[in-house]
Structures are given as C-alpha cells and as structure tokens.
Design a protein around this nucleic acid. Structure first.
Length: 289
DNA sequence: CACTTGACCTGTCCGC
DNA sequence: TGCGGACAGGTCAAGT
C-alpha cells in the first residue's frame, strides 16, 4: 500500500538511478496500465528523451523528460517501479535474486534506457497506471488539482484546518484518507496517527476540536517521518526502486496488531471497519465517540 | 455539495 | 485436495 513515505522512498531512488538516462524503448504488456494524454506521443515525447527529474505530490510520482512531457504514475495498492541496471547484476548485490526474476507475471510496462538498464512497472492488481502527458497538463489532472497540502513540507496546518472543516459530518478517518484534505495519507498512517493522537477513528470531525486536530496532523507527520527513515512499510507487495522492502511495520503501534497488547496501556487492540477500510485501534486509549 | 458504497483487479487465506 | 467466498485498500463513479 504505497502511501507518502513509500512513494517518497521510490522517488528518492529513481532520482538517483534514472536522472540523465535516455529512454530507448517502451514495452506495454498491459494496455490499461499505460495511457497517453492528448498532446503527447510516445515516439516523439518519450523515445530518445532524457529523464531530467523525479517529483512527487501526495502519492503521485512525476518523471520529467527533456521533451517537455512528463511520465506521471500512481502505484495504487500493489504497484512497483523497480530499476534494474548493470550495477545490480554484479556478484553479491543483495537484490540480485529478486531483480533477476524480472520481468515476472505482474510486470505491466518496461521502460528501456539506451545503456540497457530498465525500469519495470509491476502491478499485481492493475489498479496503478503510468500516463505520458505534456508537462503543462500535469497540474490539471483532477487528482492533483484538488489535492490538499503536503504534510511534510512547510506548515500544512492552516490549509489542512481549512479543508478538514469542510467535512464536519464525516468521521475523522475518512477525512484523513481524503486526498483533497491532506496529501499522501493512506490506511496505515491514518490508523497510526489516530492511535498516537488518542482519537477514535469513527469520531465525527465536528466532535474534534482544533487542539485535537492539530495533534492528529502532528502525529501523522511524525509517523510518516519515522517511516521514511525506515524505507516505508512493506505489508506484502511494496518495494523501493531497488527492490528493497521497507521495515516501518515493525514499529507500527496498531496496524495489523489486532489481538496484541497496546504499547501504551496494555489493552487488547481491536480491528473494525471504518470508512470502508480495515481499521485498527485501542479501545481504551481511543474511546468510542 | 457532503457523504457513502461499490467497482476496478489479482492473489491469498479460510472453512467446508 | 478443490472450491467458493471474504479480504486486502487507493481512487473514482454512482448512489443517497
């Protein structure tokens, strides 16, 4: 489940691995995984273009090209962007065994570079996508145009506060998952932030005062910063641009810990369903609203 | 407009 | 062992 820390970890890897490489080929194995927007053409705007940078907004990755176009991607739940270059095939590289297996049956798109290195877009469930589009069109994607503030950049509080207060009747977990309220939070970090802030996930936004809202935002920032330090969370599928798993879940306080004791009060953690998602919480630290 | 639910997919796990 | 069904969860379309 790539959320902000996972997508940022991929971005950092790609920035180091593919900037300045020149695209030589693109192989689309699953048509629905690759789109070309109006105003862009594969032959003119992707082939022979150099990668000039890799940006992120929320959970969306943007690979900028020298052609004036951008390869936008969303990993959704099971997407991976894994780079394989010559330097990874030397004896002893810890990921040789994993990388040697690519492409595999989840590979949807293969971007080849002119030095024979390759970037694999793997996605077991085909929910994720790549889209080639003119750079000037990127900000007009509905997803990006409506997106809330970046939680780890600057001071997101004023904008977060303004936006979350538009959803007074929704529960706080649904609001945190809404990318137009704040960018990049998904199911794992929503549960972790609400546990840290001691707020029950079903609490209506209208019942959360500003002090608590601030505490929730600060908690979300803290758990995502910590996750970034550990390469994100690997539940099942997630790997970074070099095929490495993330280890944050060993630090998680509630996610997938139902039935185990709360690390703060010792009570048995529960799992329920809130906002249509599996939701983990402590019934003592986070009392029902 | 605010809010909720189901669809999109594939693989895994559980009970029979 | 095989098989049906529940489940995983990000986003969007369609529903209330």
């Amino acid at each position: 489940m790539p959320e902000l820390p996972e997508v940022e970890t991929v971005r950092r890897g790609l920035e180091r691995l593919i900037v300045d490489r020149v695209v030589a080929s693109v192989e689309v194995l699953s048509e629905k995984s690759f789109a070309v927007a109006p105003g862009a053409e594969v032959a003119r705007d992707l082939l022979d273009a150099a990668v000039t940078g890799v940006r992120r907004r929320g959970k969306v990755l943007m690979t900028d090209l020298s052609s004036g176009c951008c390869l936008v991607s969303h990993l959704k739940m099971t997407g991976q962007l894994v780079f394989v270059g010559d330097e990874h095939w030397g004896a002893g590289h810890p990921n040789d065994s994993l990388l040697a297996e690519l492409p595999d049956r989840s590979t949807r798109v293969i971007i080849g570079f002119d030095d024979t290195s390759r970037l694999f877009f793997n996605d077991q469930r085909k929910f994720g996508w790549l889209q080639l589009m003119p750079s000037a069109s990127v900000d007009q994607l509905d997803l990006l145009a409506a997106m809330g503030p970046e939680p780890l950049t600057g001071d997101p509080w004023p904008e977060f506060h303004r936006r979350v207060r538009r959803h007074q009747r929704a529960n706080i977990k649904a609001a945190l998952l809404d990318q137009s309220v704040v960018a990049g939070i998904g199911n794992i970090y929503a549960d972790e932030a609400l546990w840290a802030a001691e707020v029950h996930p079903s609490t209506p936004v209208s019942a959360v005062n500003d002090e608590r809202l601030r505490r929730i935002l600060d908690a979300a920032r803290a758990v995502m910063e910590l996750s970034l330090e550990h390469g994100g969370s690997t539940d099942r599928n997630y790997v970074d641009a070099e095929g490495r798993r993330g280890s944050y879940l060993t630090f998680a306080n509630v996610f997938r810990r139902q039935g185990q004791p709360c690390r703060r009060c010792g009570a048995t953690l529960f799992k329920t369903r809130v906002a249509g998602r599996g939701t983990h919480y402590c019934p003592v630290c986070q009392p029902e609203p």
